[in-house]
């Protein structure tokens, strides 16, 4: 892995140069919060953002997406794959870990052409977190405070410049074509190491136990009284899963024209927290109670996905805790289960 130095004053010219050939997506201010969006002016890019309302997952799996078009008269079905060459800038490492999990979800068993094509066309420039992004994040507990994979380029703020880890050939080409950089000196490497080791104590562990214990803990907590308690507080609004970087469930629906001949098949994000999510043909709803649905979410994040992909489904970004108007905290939930175990 090669280390380069990008002067901060060279960032805006780099973004502008990239915009000629790519859609550049990065964190921008949205009211008092932040959101990943298309950059039309480098001044919009806010690498000092804390976190975003929705995770950058939406770049790889958009909220709404066309899958195919059909014509009933001509018995014709045409796949639609909407992918644009994109540079995604400023991804925090928690979201990088989430991407690695999504990659597995969309490439195993039933490879998803739509996701995979967008993934292929997306260049990822990630960002090392040097301070906790906000009061809700617990990335250090979940082992996502850093990452040595999942990106093409990785930036670390050194004050007046960024240290740039070049991880892939794509990353190397991006730098050579679009950016003015220099090779890191020994002094730069020393400074980088200092910055990196200084950051860890700022992130306090939030989980009272080792996250590796989660699958076993949850395995024994299926009948835990916590679920009933959460069921009473939960509004079943689906915000927790909609802001989650590792949730990938979707619903599929058709839009037809007025002649009822031609149309398009769409998919959109879905949520296991919604009343009707688990209703199946015949009318049976096998997760009717809000308590059962909250339990399902905790199990997905701390147990089921681990069993499926070998990675925990929670990256500790804290978005679900912030988004919950009923103040349900997955962190407090995990800790409560540990405490009573």
């Amino acid at each position: 892995m090669k280390l380069m130095i990008l002067d901060k004053s060279a960032l805006a010219p780099m973004v502008n140069a990239l915009r000629a050939d790519y859609r550049v997506v990065g964190p921008q201010a949205r009211g008092p919060q932040f959101a990943f969006d298309v950059i039309t002016d480098p001044a919009q890019l806010r690498l000092d953002y804390n976190t975003t309302i929705l995770p950058p997952k939406k770049v790889l799996q958009p909220q709404y997406e066309r899958l195919l078009s059909f014509n009933r008269r001509e018995y014709q079905v045409t796949p639609i794959i909407e992918a644009t060459p994109t540079v995604l800038v400023g991804v925090h490492t928690c979201d990088l870990h989430a991407f690695l999990l999504l990659d597995q979800a969309f490439s195993r068993e039933y490879p998803d052409a739509h996701y995979l094509e967008r993934r292929r066309q997306t260049v990822i420039i990630s960002l090392e977190c040097l301070e906790p992004c906000d009061e809700y994040s617990f990335c250090r507990s979940m082992g996502t405070l850093t990452s040595d994979t999942g990106y093409d380029l990785h930036l670390t703020d050194l004050g007046t410049a960024y240290a740039v880890h070049v991880a892939t050939e794509t990353g190397r080409q991006i730098l050579s074509r679009y950016a003015t950089v220099r090779e890191a000196t020994e002094a730069d490497v020393r400074q980088l190491n200092e910055v990196l080791s200084a950051k860890w104590p700022r992130f306090t562990y939030r989980l009272d136990f080792d996250a590796a214990e989660l699958p076993a803990l949850l395995g024994a907590a299926y009948d835990h009284p916590l679920w009933e308690e959460l069921g009473e507080r939960c509004l079943a609004c689906g915000s927790c899963t909609n802001v989650c970087p590792t949730c990938y469930c979707f619903n599929v629906f058709d839009e037809v024209d007025m002649q009822l001949v031609a149309g398009e098949r769409w998919r959109c994000w879905d949520s296991c927290q919604l009343d009707e999510f688990a209703r199946v043909a015949g009318g049976e709803n096998f997760r009717k109670a809000r308590s059962a649905r909250q339990r399902h979410r905790f199990m997905r994040k701390g147990k089921y996905l681990y069993e499926k992909f070998g990675e925990l489904g929670c990256v500790g970004c804290g978005r679900c805790i912030r988004a919950c108007v009923a103040k349900i905290s997955i962190l407090e939930g995990f800790n409560a289960i540990h405490q009573s175990a």
């Binding site: 949205r30 959101a35 309302i53 929705l54 939406k58 909220q63 709404y64 509004l235 079943a236 609004c237 689906g238 915000s239 909609n242 802001v243 959109c268 994000w269 949520s271 919604l274 009343d275 009707e276 988004a323």
Partner: peptide
């Protein structure tokens, strides 16, 4: 489902 779903998806 509730309005929150559409609101969140609009970010």
């Amino acid at each position: 489902y509730p309005v929150c779903v559409e609101c969140k998806l609009k970010e």
